[in-house]
């Protein structure tokens, strides 16, 4: 898998119908469309309550052409385990089972079943679309909401705690493939899903997913803001393959280059309005220290 996918050799078949219930500018609708192209028709989806179940819509506005098990909130990976077990018992070795959950369904209420499935070595792909809060219920903080962000449950000073590093937690299970991606780089995500399909056992892909309504920016800036998160070095695209860490794509190109100041990224979204200059400076220092580590490797 060295060949990079471009817009020209992307499969033409659409597995997500247009006219679905996603908000305008929804980052999830980008990655869902491209992600399903990478997964192909021989895929079974397992999805907990999340924006994705809203996007999939109410009949007759149903968005997905794949079989989808919309399961309870805490149990995405557990339900995927059951589907997988039955498929393999029927000797259906090729069908890909994909759990696709939001950050709450992955990092908070869903982490127990995910951790259990990773430890058991279930042969599935878990994709977390991380829009950094509970957007489906109206923007409440989640485990992956960054420090300082205003949500409806952190309305005064913003969230006091740091963002939970879910990919690192999952990588600590020693699974063979962990990757991060961004809705602003859908083709990078496409290639990562394609690669994940060639590996067996649990595979985890964490996708940074800008949300205009929840983050407070105009819908037309979804891709721009997603890119800024990467270009400032705040959110890094990488793969951990067989326990080996490697920056990928746009993040890899940043090595040795001057990164954009993170303050520029914060300015683009109203959710960061309570952020103090001191906190901004702290984040910048954390990014600089992190990248010094990357560059010295």
């Amino acid at each position: 898998m060295t060949e990079k996918t471009t817009i020209l050799n992307l499969p033409e078949e659409e597995l997500v119908h247009p006219g679905n219930r996603a908000c305008s500018g929804c980052g999830l609708s980008i990655i869902y469309r491209i992600g399903l192209k990478a997964l192909g028709r021989d895929t079974i989806l397992v999805v907990p309550p999340s924006c994705l179940t809203v996007l999939q819509g109410l009949y007759p506005i149903a968005a997905t052409q794949l079989p989808c098990l919309n399961v309870t909130f805490a149990s995405t990976a557990a339900a995927a385990t059951g589907v997988l077990g039955a498929l393999r018992a029927q000797k259906r070795e090729k069908t890909t089972v994909v759990a696709w959950a939001g950050d709450g369904g992955t990092s908070d209420i869903g982490i127990q079943s995910l951790s259990g499935a990773c430890e058991r070595g279930e042969d599935f792909i878990f994709i977390c679309y991380d829009n950094e809060a509970y957007m489906n219920t109206g923007v409440q903080r989640s485990g992956t909401t960054p420090k300082g962000v205003i949500t409806t449950t952190t309305p005064i000073r913003g969230k006091l705690q740091k963002k939970k590093e879910v990919p690192a937690i999952i990588a600590a299970h020693g699974i063979d493939y962990v990757a991060t991606a961004s809705a602003a780089y859908p083709l990078d995500l496409y290639d990562k899903i394609k690669k994940a399909k060639t590996i067996s056992g649990p595979r985890y892909i964490h996708v940074h997913t800008p949300c205009p309504a929840g983050w407070g920016f105009e819908p037309r800036y979804t891709v721009k803001i997603g890119k800024m998160a990467v270009e400032t070095g705040l959110y890094d695209l990488y793969e951990i393959e067989h326990s080996k860490f490697k920056l990928t794509g746009p993040s890899r190109k940043l090595i040795g280059k001057k990164r954009k100041p993170v303050a520029e990224y914060f300015k683009t979204q109203s959710r960061f309005k309570a952020l103090s200059d001191k906190r901004t400076e702290e984040v910048q220092q954390e990014i600089d220290a992190k990248w010094e580590g990357y560059e010295n490797e």
Partner: peptide, 30 residues
Amino acid sequence: GYPITPSTEITEHMALKLPQIGGKFLQMED
């Protein structure tokens, strides 16, 4: 609490009000 429709406004109201009167609000993981 933990956000869930149609009770979320209670949790949100507590997040706003309780800290202002010296109370403690926590959003939990489930």
